[in-house]
């Protein structure tokens, strides 16, 4: 991925030299041309084109902001309810993510969405232990995390 970005910048700089105008707009045009060239020569790259990854990262950010707002509102509802009927629980979440940064990202996202805090990561990094504020159904909670965040992170890292 880093190589593709570097190549793209290189093409943009080459475009600046070819047109012999060194302004930001020329760089942008060269960068766009570089994007097109990368897209045309995509079968020579081993990994996926990097702008799909950027797109996936953007989608992950939007998903995260949405979840953050929704679940903050749900905690708000929980706090102002006259009778406090919480059902806290520690549950285990098996994860398929492998790299350290993926697990860090996942646990940060889980921790920042209210209702869940990551308490422990198991030694083999296959399981996250999560404390949830109000659980009706554990499997449902696991499913929702797995389907939203884990899938989106995989989308960013794989391919």
């Amino acid at each position: 991925m880093a190589f593709q970005i570097l190549l793209n910048v290189f093409i943009a700089v080459t475009w600046m030299f070819m047109t012999s105008s060194f302004s930001a707009s020329t760089f942008v045009i060269g960068y766009l041309i570089g994007l097109t060239l990368l897209f045309l020569t995509r079968r020579f790259f081993k990994s996926r084109l990097y702008f799909w990854k950027l797109w996936a990262a953007l989608k992950l950010t939007l998903l995260f902001l949405k979840e953050l707002t929704l679940s903050n509102i749900s905690v708000f509802m929980l706090v102002i309810r006259p009778k406090l009927n919480l059902q806290p629980m520690f549950f285990a979440l098996p994860t398929e993510l492998e790299h350290d940064w993926e697990i860090t990202l996942l646990s940060s996202l889980i921790t920042l969405t209210p209702g869940t805090i990551v308490v422990n990561v198991s030694d083999d990094q296959r399981t996250l232990y999560i404390h949830a504020l109000d659980v009706d159904d554990v499997d449902e909670a696991i499913e929702s995390i797995k389907n939203s965040f884990e899938k989106a992170i995989m989308e960013v890292s794989r391919g």
């Binding site: 406090l84 920042l112 969405t113 404390h131």
Partner: peptide, 15 residues
Amino acid sequence: RFPDVYTRAHAASKS
């Protein structure tokens, strides 16, 4: 309002 340290950590660290 929350009863223990973990539930309080929820409120403190996120909202």
